[in-house]
């Protein structure tokens, strides 16, 4: 199918983009990589009057250190997650997740900010912002604000973003020497949406886990932190007993939806399997 007719505006600055959105009566969409938006337009799931191209806005580009954070510009492409040395060094969880995001040609166009803004519950990056305790910087008609990832994902494809607002950057706390991470997903074929996926970031003193954040995707309406499982691990050493306790806790943390091809019990089982594998890897990373 073909998209319904729309007008196109290429914004040069954030202010221009916000202004255009407001003047279109909010019947507008921002487009960056467009790897999810273009199919949505082609299928006429969305039909705005105006498409505002933000890919030429310089302020949305670039990766740099800022205080204790890595500031990743919203327009950073998925392929740059693999090639950018600052990301490999200071946000290695994103670097590890990137090869699992769709296919190479999609990664050449898709953007980090776009992925987080869409908040697809089956996507890797939104869930990783939760594991990383990242902050999302948002520009809107009433100014700029920063929202913690924990407060950003609200419901299915629903986020803290208000109409006319735009993600400008994502702030990720710098990876530290006493931290460990792990990522993996289970999918029927490489590049497919995961049946279950998970990423985690732990802060350790020797073998003891002082803090851990574990985030799953493809398990419900939003990317999901498993706080019950986290709690069983904090303050403990990673041994078989602790791992089993964390796996058992998933039943309270996750309530996978019913779907035709993957029953909830199967998804929960796969989540337990994946959690066990990743915690095992985390332990080996000592």
């Amino acid at each position: 199918m073909k998209a319904r007719a729309f007008s196109y505006f290429r914004a040069a600055t954030i202010d221009q983009a916000l202004d255009a959105h407001a003047r279109a009566g909010d019947d507008a969409r921002f487009i960056a990589g467009g790897q999810s938006l273009v199919p949505a337009l082609s299928l006429r799931l969305q039909a705005p009057r105006l498409l505002i191209d933000i890919t030429h806005i310089e302020e949305l580009r670039g990766v740099r250190r800022e205080g204790g954070y890595l500031r990743i510009g919203a327009l950073t492409r998925h392929c740059e997650m693999l090639s950018e040395p600052l990301i490999a060094e200071f946000a290695p969880l994103l670097h590890a997740a990137a090869p699992f995001v769709a296919h190479p040609a999609i990664r050449n166009r898709g953007t980090f900010g776009g992925s987080v803004a869409l908040a697809d519950p089956a996507s890797e990056f939104p869930a990783m912002t939760l594991a990383l305790d990242a902050e999302i910087e948002i520009a809107g008609p009433s100014g700029s604000r920063r929202v913690k990832a924990d407060d950003f994902f609200v419901e299915l494809f629903e986020t803290a973003l208000q109409p006319g607002e735009l993600i400008t950057a994502i702030y990720v706390p710098l990876f530290k020497a006493d931290q460990r991470f792990a990522f993996d997903e289970l999918a029927r074929r490489r590049g497919d949406y995961a049946l279950v996926g998970c990423g985690m970031l732990a802060t350790c003193t020797g073998e003891r886990i002082d803090d851990i954040r574990i985030s799953f995707f493809s398990v419900g309406n939003t990317p999901t932190r498993v706080k019950g499982a986290e709690a069983t691990l904090i303050g403990s050493r990673l041994d078989a007993e602790r791992i089993a306790a964390a796996q058992a806790a998933l039943e309270g943390d996750l309530a996978p939806p019913d779907s035709d091809d993957v029953p909830p019990a199967m998804r929960l089982h796969l989540a337990r399997v994946l959690l066990g594998r990743l915690l095992g890897r985390l332990g080996e990373g000592a």
């Binding site: 273009v38 082609s42 498409l51 191209d53 392929c79 999609i106 050449n108 166009r109």
Partner: peptide
């Protein structure tokens, strides 16, 4: 870079 020409508008 390789990209899908169906996933972008000519503009």
């Amino acid at each position: 870079r390789a990209v899908h020409s169906c996933l972008m508008f000519a503009v």
